[in-house]
Design a binder for these strands. Structure first.
Length: 418
RNA sequence: CGGAGCGUAGCAUAGUGGUUUAAUGCGCUGCCUUCGGGAGGCAGAGAACGUGGGUUCAAAUCCCACCGCUCCGACCA
């Protein structure tokens, strides 16, 4: 992608009242733009990151054996009345009426629909287990949206639902999902704590949250210094010593990037979702549900992966892998050589399927290009200038490093592939 | 929903009753210079001062209502 063609307008100054680092940097780098409180547009650069996160999640879900589907956001009141959540979940349920004055909700989560769908398709132990997931827009009428992407009212979420014969089987799957979540978060540049949590209005008998330690986090968690046991203070209160080993509990602020629930038969009961076992006995299907908010994950990654100059994207979710930056020269002949070489490197990288953003903008000073590059946070910067050309080289610098190194133009692909 | 604050050009801010024909910086357009860390000069374009009402000889400025945004609280997968 040529930067001159990209819809991108980085900003030097933003409102002083925006305090959260990820909020500041994502706006300054022109990844997102606010439309209303807690409602954001994803601009081309931001959408590339979001899609990369989605791709990672989808891969891991498929590894788990889950199947992708897509459920409606607009749902009739009756569905929500069945589980009493029409009342219980208000807030944050978004409610509206159609032209015939019928009540609808914009779904904040999808246990109701999925259980109803399963109820029409699951009859026998032969139909179990099943796991389905979607990446879909959720609506939550929060009392207050906060911190840019950290708490939105409309946001993209991956929700996974699992159906099982027994609690034992369901918990086994629950543990598999936990591992899968750790993989997802690691690939997004995060190493969250796993903590015990309360189930809230989702319900169920067991739940864990994935918590990224950050001063911007709204959640308070306690982590045992000795055995690593963790819990949300919302669940256990402000205890001093670990329930497991009596070790000292340490208090941290954290961002909840994922939440897993064992629902047991809470929803199966509401929708009469039963299956026949081998012996003909009918029992309620045991369910689990598992969520990851994509934009929040993106913001959490920025909270952890940034410095004073800007974002430092982890490679897997970066909008581009390489930022190619020619530095103009006053000498006409050399300037032509720089352009020619940059074009050549650009095309060579593209041919090798390396995602590259080419800063082909004219009349920009080196300082401005570097400042933009640091802000946008593409992992690898490749500079071509009079200085590097004199050595038939480019300067390659990782965003997270201070110093770059010269690499011969001929060897650049080999170097980058490695 | 309770408390506090804010709303002035694409962005960030100053101006808080009277030479204000609303200012400054960034960004934008043109010309010149500059070119390895957000360069400089000259010339320009760009604003119903959130909306509506009120007070006053006079309102961006004071008052009221509404709308919107931020923060704290409550709330919350």
């Amino acid at each position: 992608m040529k930067q001159s063609q990209l819809l991108l307008s980085t900003k030097k100054a933003i409102k002083s009242k925006i305090e959260i680092a990820s909020h500041q940097l994502l706006i300054r780098g022109d990844f997102i733009e606010e439309l209303a409180a807690g409602i954001y547009s994803f601009l081309p650069l931001g959408f590339l990151v979001l899609k990369n996160i989605e791709k990672i999640i989808r891969e891991e879900m498929i590894n788990l054996g889950a199947q992708e589907l897509f459920l409606p956001a607009l749902q009739p009141k009756e569905l929500w009345a069945k589980t009493t959540r029409w009342k219980k979940m208000d807030p944050p349920l978004f409610k509206l009426k159609d032209r015939h004055q019928k009540d609808f909700a914009l779904a904040p989560t999808h246990e109701e629909v999925i259980t109803q769908i399963a109820q029409k398709r699951i009859y026998s132990f032969r139909d179990l287990p099943k796991a389905v997931f979607q990446v879909q827009t959720k609506f939550r009428n929060e009392m207050r949206a906060t911190g840019g992407l950290l708490r939105q009212r409309e946001f993209l979420m991956k929700d996974l639902y699992s159906l099982h014969q027994t609690e034992k089987e369901a918990i086994l799957f629950y543990e598999k999902v936990k591992n899968s979540y750790f993989k997802i978060f690691r690939r997004c540049g995060l190493s969250p704590f796993l903590v015990e949590a309360s189930s809230g209005t989702i319900g169920g008998t067991l739940s864990h949250e994935f918590m990224v330690e950050s001063p911007s986090g709204e959640d308070r968690i306690l982590i045992c210094k000795k055995c690593g046991f963790g819990a949300n203070m919302e669940k256990i209160g402000n205890i001093k010593n670990c329930q497991k080993c009596k070790g000292r509990m340490e208090r941290k602020n954290a961002i909840e990037v994922g939440h897993v629930f064992y629902l047991s038969d809470k929803y199966s009961k509401s929708f009469n979702l039963k299956f026949s076992a081998k012996d003909g006995q009918k029992s309620y299907v045991k369910m689990g549900c598992f969520g990851i908010g994509l934009p929040r994950l993106m913001a959490a990654s920025v909270e952890i992966n940034h410095d004073e100059r800007g974002i430092v994207w982890p490679k897997e979710i970066a909008p581009f892998l390489v930022h190619l930056i020619p530095i103009p020269s006053k000498n006409n002949a050399i300037q032509k050589e720089i352009e020619k070489t940059s074009d050549f490197v650009y095309h060579t990288l593209q041919k090798s399927k390396i995602n590259v953003l080419y800063d082909d903008r004219k009349n920009r000073t080196p300082g401005e290009k570097f400042a933009d590059a640091d802000l946008i946070g593409i992992p690898i910067r490749v500079v071509i200038s009079e200085k590097t050309l004199s050595k038939e080289s480019t300067e390659i610098k990782e965003r997270k490093e201070k110093e770059g190194k010269l690499v011969k133009i001929k060897k650049i692909i080999n170097f980058l592939v490695k």
